[in-house]
Amino acid sequence: MKKFSPVLSTTAIAGLLLAGCASDDQAEAVDDHAVEGEIFAVEDPWVRATEVIMETDHDHSMTGAFVHLTNVSGEDQTIVGAHAEVAELVELHEVIDDGGVNVMQEKEGGFPLAGEQRYELNPGEDHIMLMDLAEEIQPGDVIDITLEVATGETQTIEFVAKDFVGAQENYGDLDHHDDETHSET
Rank of each mutant, 00 (worst) to 15 (best):
A82H: 09
L147V: 02
P112H: 13
V160K: 10
H176G: 07
G74P: 02
G140K: 06
K2A: 15
Q138M: 04
W46N: 14
D178V: 03
H68V: 15
D25Q: 12
G110I: 12
I145G: 01
H127G: 14
V90D: 01
A12K: 05
E55S: 11
G115L: 01
A19I: 03
K162W: 01
L92D: 15
F111W: 08
G109R: 15
E75P: 00
I53C: 12
H93A: 15
D132N: 04
C21N: 11
Y171K: 13
V90T: 13
T151W: 00
A12M: 04
M54H: 06
P45H: 15
L121P: 03
L8S: 07
E125A: 05
E158L: 06
A65D: 11
E184C: 06
E153I: 02
A12P: 00
G37N: 13
D141H: 01
E136R: 12
A167T: 08
H33I: 11
E55F: 02
D24W: 07
A41T: 11
A14M: 03
H68N: 15
P139R: 11
A150P: 04
I143N: 02
H177R: 15
K3M: 10
M104R: 09
V7R: 13
L121K: 09
G20K: 04
D141Y: 00
G20C: 05
G172K: 14
M54Q: 13
L113H: 07
H33K: 14
D141I: 02
A41S: 15
M62W: 10
G15Y: 04
E94T: 15
E36L: 01
A34R: 13
Q105M: 03
E43T: 12
L17W: 02
S9E: 08
E116T: 02
D59A: 10
V165L: 07
E125H: 06
D32F: 07
N102Q: 09
L16P: 00
